[in-house]
Design a protein around this nucleic acid. Structure first.
Lengths: 150, 150
DNA sequence: AAAAAATACTTTAAGCTTAAAAATTTTAAT
DNA sequence: ATTAAAATTTTTAAGCTTAAAGTATTTTTT
């Protein structure tokens, strides 16, 4: 009977995580759209590029963001159109390209990131530091397929 | 300085939640696809209908799942094609329709739900009952736009 | 060197998602 | 009763997402 209850409790936890995550994502999407005329996937890609000064291969972006190759192709296409990133040939391997933020892209992301942190901080206002830390640790310890370097 | 650290800690928490949620969703998608030839959005819609014996209006479905009206329209279209749900006219209001699971849909969902709970239970293996409960409570207490009845 | 396998990326087809606009129908105001 | 406003749903346009197939290039095997 205890296993049964544990299973139900974990299911409830999952449903709540899902609900909170979707709500936060939805809020972020809305604000990125109205205040920065961009989308969450674009923001995520730019964040990955911003964190890594030298740019990333399509490949690495795809793995880091856990989305399909084809998906990254489309997002980068649009970011290039917008002048936020550029594809740079890799000497010695004509299959791959390195994607870098342009100066404009870097400046634009920098502004968004500051606000993004403020938004998150406000949305999670009810979470005290030790709770944030505790939950973070727990999430970090989840079995293999679920976590990864962060 | 403490506010600064708190903000960073909350941001870290958010990023981890996002990562775990995406990973779990990705696993669920994959299994629903390969083992039940369906998708997560279809599953979510069927879950909402299953929980409510009398069917729901498009309207209610949209609000309950927190997705746009137009989105629900498309998913229901496909579920109707598959014979899982049906649209039933509401007498007295020709604008709205009530969506109900068919017998086949109910049977199909019932099977999936059992497995779904098993999958979740396995994915969250590292979370003890008191932790699940604790985190669940915290998530539940988040400020207004973030939570809702569940 | 030629063939096979692996790697990096793009394309395609199908479906999900949203916001905004449109179409219908109902309710409220005048 | 007419008109205006609100409610319910669908349509549309744009973009996100995936799996699978396709293209080009590099590496490994034979």
């Amino acid at each position: 009977m205890t296993a049964e209850r544990l299973s139900k409790e974990r299911l409830r936890l999952w449903l709540r995580m899902l609900r909170v995550t979707r709500q936060v994502e939805s809020t972020l999407r809305e604000r990125l759209r109205t205040e920065h005329d961009t989308t969450l996937p674009r923001f995520d890609v730019m964040a990955a590029l911003y964190a890594d000064g030298n740019g990333l291969k399509m490949n690495e972006l795809s793995r880091r963001l856990r989305v399909s190759n084809g998906n990254v192709t489309g997002i980068i296409d649009r970011l290039v159109e917008d002048g936020c990133v550029e594809r740079i040939a890799i000497e010695g391997d004509r299959r791959a390209t390195r994607v870098c933020l342009t100066d404009a892209g870097r400046a634009s992301f920098s502004k968004m990131a500051t606000e993004h942190e403020r938004w998150i901080n406000a949305l999670f206002e009810g979470v005290a530091e030790e709770d944030a830390h505790h939950i973070g640790e727990l999430l970090h310890r989840l079995p293999t397929p679920l976590h990864d370097a962060t």
